Each structure stands twice: as C-alpha cells, then as structure tokens.
Amino acid sequence: MTHYVALLRAVNVGGTGKLPMAELRAMCESLGFADVRTYIASGNVVFTSKLAEKALKTKLERALETYAGKPVGVVIRTAAELAVVLDANPFKSAAPNRTVAIFLDAPPPADTLAGVSGQQAEEIALGVREIYVHYGDGIANSKLKIAAAKAGTARNMNTVATLAEWAAA
C-alpha cells in the first residue's frame, strides 16, 4: 500500500464547491481508499491505496463530479513526493503561511516565468511539478497572476508540512 495525498481544487473556497470533509472521507472510503484522513476544509485528504496515481485521480475526479455536478480537479502526490516538495521549498527562511506550493499535474512549462503578470514583492521558483511562491507582502493584496498555475491548486507550507507528516506516518 502506498501513502498518498489528494489535493482538491476550488473546494470550500470563497463559498464555492461546498464539500463537507466527512463526505469526502466517506467518498474516499467508498472508492476503496484506506486509512483516510482529511485536513482542514479546503480539500486535503491523506490515504493509502494499492492503485497508481492516474487511477486514483480518475476515480476520485469521477466521484467528485457526480457529487458536485461539475468537474473538480484533483492533484495526487505520494508521501515521498510531498516530502520532496517540502524539502525543496526555496523560501524556507520565509514565513510558511506566506509561502505556497502550487501543485500541478505536470512539470511547469519552461516559459512559466515569462507568463507572470502583476508581480510585486512576490518571489517565484519552479519545482518538479510545483510552482513555489513567496508572498512577501501577504497574499490578500497580491495581484500576481501565473498563467501556468491556472489548473493547479495551492497550499501554504504549514499545510504541506502537516500533510507530509500525516502521509509519512
């Protein structure tokens, strides 16, 4: 059994995509995932499964679409991959609540940085299948737009650290 983390996109954010975490846990268990735990109400679920990443993603996205009546994006990482994301954070000295990893399904395109607009005090770095952003002045007033991040989902480094710890347990 492999330990995984699923990160749902646009769930319980700004009044859209309401999904109680108890229902997400039950959904994952009904799909055959084991040791299911959710973390905060933004669509983070840790579990174990014998299935490969692509099969997990497909099963969970189909179940979520049936539930929500519209597509819900899911990004999957193994426990080991999430530990690498945490270790590779290029902004380790920055406040973890002002630093995010934007999780993508594929490596960020080579022209990712060229497609950035509205950048002010933010610092940006590319990862394996992530884009790291440090919001020096905080995220609330940022005008930063990263075209390559449109299909991704962001988690701050506090959340990444907790999920990595849970997935490794």
Rank of each mutant, 00 (worst) to 15 (best):
M1C: 11
H3T: 07
H3W: 06
Y4M: 05
Y4Q: 06
A6D: 03
L7R: 08
L7S: 10
R9S: 09
V11F: 06
V11M: 11
V13Y: 07
V13R: 00
G15F: 05
T16G: 14
T16K: 15
G17V: 08
G17N: 04
L19V: 14
P20T: 01
P20L: 08
P20N: 05
M21R: 09
A22K: 11
A22R: 14
E23I: 09
L24G: 01
L24D: 11
L24N: 05
A26F: 07
A26W: 06
C28W: 03
C28R: 09
E29S: 00
E29L: 02
G32F: 03
F33N: 04
F33P: 01
F33G: 11
V36K: 00
V36P: 12
R37K: 14
Y39Q: 11
I40N: 05
S42L: 04
G43F: 03
N44W: 05
N44R: 03
N44Y: 06
V45E: 04
V45H: 13
T48F: 08
K50N: 15
K50W: 05
L51H: 02
L51K: 13
E53Q: 15
E53I: 14
L56H: 02
K57E: 03
K57N: 04
T58D: 12
T58P: 02
K59Q: 15
L60R: 08
L60W: 10
E61P: 13
E61Q: 12
Y67S: 06
A68N: 11
G69Y: 15
K70Q: 15
K70S: 14
P71N: 10
R77L: 11
T78C: 01
A80C: 06
E81C: 03
L86H: 05
D87G: 12
N89R: 09
F91I: 09
K92D: 04
S93D: 15
S93M: 01
A95M: 07
A95V: 07
P96R: 04
P96C: 01
N97R: 09
R98T: 04
V100N: 02
D105R: 01
P107K: 05
P108C: 08
P109K: 07
A110S: 14
T112G: 05
T112C: 12
A114W: 07
A114T: 05
V116E: 07
S117H: 08
G118V: 08
G118F: 11
Q119M: 11
Q120K: 15
E122I: 13
E123D: 05
E123A: 06
E123L: 00
I124W: 10
A125N: 07
A125P: 02
A125F: 00
G127W: 10
E130H: 01
Y132G: 00
V133L: 13
V133K: 02
H134T: 00
G136T: 01
A140G: 14
S142N: 11
S142W: 10
K143W: 02
K143N: 04
I146L: 08
A148H: 08
A148E: 11
A149E: 03
A151E: 14
G152C: 04
T153M: 09
R155M: 07
R155H: 00
N158W: 07
N158R: 14
T159F: 05
T159Y: 09
T159Q: 10
A161Q: 13
T162H: 15
E165N: 13
E165R: 15
W166L: 13
W166T: 08
A169T: 15
